[in-house]
Design a protein around this nucleic acid. Structure first.
Length: 498
RNA sequence: GGCGCCGUAGCCAAGUGGUAAGGCAGCGGUUUGCAAAACCGUUAUUCACCAGUUCGAAUCUGGUCGGCGCCUCCA
């Protein structure tokens, strides 16, 4: 079954057919780095990271580019608001960009977004931007006007094809600023002349900086070629950003730009879109990562289809925390049974195990892959993961794997099934390493030994049927966030995740 | 006003022509000294509403109602 994906350009689901067989070039619009990342900034990266994992798994060689827009009006406004003067403005813009970029990279890393191959900065691609701007002027698609350069939308017959807007109506509906340097209201800046002190580069039209859309055209075409496969971004970027990107890129190169346009839905909070202009809705990643497991946040973003909006709430994350806990509990169980860590499993563990997949497991594997083939249906795929978990727990129950001795062949089948879970969860970027708090707790010098001591004393109490006291110990530990489980192989303790 | 999306159980959510995945919460059971964990069963005769197409519709068509996004910076 081929991979199918919904294309905003054609408004239909299409089979993936790449420009170069076996290769995928993918460009996703990254942030303008003027303020710290909020959860909305993570939707695209997590989705497209997952898409890349799946494409690679499916045999494609993928090059994924995410840009950083590090010069823009918003950065300038921000440092001006903070009291920048013409003398230090350029330096402060640079410093702000670096600080915010570092924060963005930290957030990506925390959420397991590690598939980005290149992260070009707009300021590193000024020559390419000037080249395209010049080229568009020469072809008659752009014009210089008062130190700025604008793209003339009336020269592009296809203008509006991505966002499916009628150009004439757009004209009629747009407001015209008095004294505007534009010929048409819909024209947009390729180059903006700068005021004294603002970050500026020399150009044939005087000192200035790139317009908002041009850097994406310059960087994507430079790194992926004029015609590449997938262009992604938030639904809110379709117009005007992506529309303008298509227009200027195709007019410049004379070739089709991206084949497939994938747009992710926007995050809402309380039903309202998360937006910088509405501070109530902002949920900064730094705060979120302090309260929840990264896997939980990632699972939230993958829990429904990527084009649908996701309503963020703390309750929702708490609910998902509980849901994912079952997996972590199972991983501990797996380690007790087999002596190997779930997190150390990989594809070759399958060969080592030397066992066939149980039918049930291979059926679920097929279901998972079918869901992913169908426009990257991560919500459906995640559901299959829960099915798989249940199958594996049931197998361990029925075969009494917790009570040695265990038949080697039976255990090998079990391992084979768990390797599949590891493999599929990895495609979603989930459970790639032990949870943070579990790691922190086991690193503590005293906590473990003290709990072992308490458990050992309590075991003596239970042997002498002193249940009142042993239950009190368990209850009070629970209050402290330590769960005791009296199982077949003795009592285990576990510190709850936050 | 134009373009587009959505409405599936108490909540979240998959399913786009063949008779309703999964998660959370709840209830009953197995297990347990009691719990926890795990497993089993159970919770929508029905997919906002109305009409139509069809042997058959949550899925297709038309209409109604409700929620949202874009058209201005936004991931």
């Amino acid at each position: 079954m081929p991979i199918r994906l919904y294309n905003t350009l054609t408004q239909t689901k299409e089979d993936l057919q790449t420009v170069v067989p076996g290769r995928v070039g993918m460009y996703v619009c990254g942030p303008t780095v003027y303020s710290f990342s909020h959860i909305g900034h993570m939707v695209g990266p997590v989705i497209f990271d997952t898409i890349k994992r799946y494409l690679v798994y499916s045999g494609y060689e993928v090059t994924w580019v995410v840009n950083i827009t590090d010069v823009d009006d918003k950065l300038i406004q921000r440092v001006q608001a903070e009291g920048a003067t013409p003398a230090d403005m350029a330096a402060r813009v640079k410093a702000l960009a670096e600080t915010v970029t570092a924060d963005y990279l930290d957030c990506l890393k925390a959420l397991g977004v590690d598939g980005i191959d290149q992260m070009p900065r707009a300021t590193e691609h000024i020559p390419g931007i000037l080249e395209i701007t010049q080229g568009l002027i020469e072809k008659g698609n752009a014009y210089a006007s008062g130190g700025d350069v604008y793209f003339d939308v009336t020269t592009d017959a296809d203008y509006g094809k991505l966002s499916h807007r009628d150009f004439e109506e757009l004209e009629a509906g747009a407001r015209v600023d008095p004294g505007d340097k534009k010929r048409n209201p819909g024209d947009f800046a390729l180059w903006k002349g700068s005021k004294p002190g603002e970050p500026a580069w020399d150009s044939p039209w005087g000192p200035g900086r790139p317009g908002w859309h041009i850097e994406c055209s310059a960087m994507s075409m430079k790194l992926l070629g004029p015609h590449f496969d997938i262009h992604g971004g938030g639904l809110d970027l379709v117009f005007p950003h992506h529309e303008n990107e298509v227009a200027q890129s195709e007019c410049y190169s004379g070739k089709p730009f991206a084949t497939y346009w994938l747009h992710n839905g926007l995050l809402t909070k309380g039903g309202k879109k998360i937006s910088k202009s509405d501070p109530e809705t902002i949920v900064e990643m730094r705060d979120l990562l302090a309260r929840h497991q990264p896997d939980t946040i990632r699972a939230l973003l993958l829990s429904s289809h990527y084009r649908r909006p996701i309503d963020y709430s703390n309750d929702r994350l708490d609910e998902l925390d509980r849901a994912l806990r079952g997996f972590r509990t199972f991983f501990d169980r797996f380690e007790r049974i087999t002596g190997q860590s779930f997190y150390s499993l990989n594809a070759s563990s399958q060969k080592t195990a030397g066992a066939e997949f149980p039918d049930e497991v291979s059926d679920l594997r097929r279901q998972f892959l079918d869901a992913m083939d169908d426009d990257f249906n991560t919500g459906g795929a995640l559901g299959v993961l829960f099915d798989l978990l249940r199958v594996l727990n049931r197998y361990a129950d029925l075969q009494q794997l917790d009570k040695p001795p265990v038949d080697a062949a039976v255990q090998a089948r079990f391992v084979a099934g768990v390797v599949t879970l590891r493999e599929l969860a990895g495609l979603l970027g989930l459970f790639r390493e032990p949870s943070k708090s579990a790691e922190a707790d086991s690193g503590d010098r005293l906590t473990g030994p003290l709990l072992d001591l308490l458990v050992s004393l309590r075991t003596s109490l239970r042997k002498s049927k002193n249940f009142a006291l042993s239950d009190e110990i368990r209850d009070r530990l629970t209050e402290l966030g330590v769960i005791l489980e009296d199982g077949a192989g003795g009592t285990r303790w576990k510190i709850t995740d936050r």
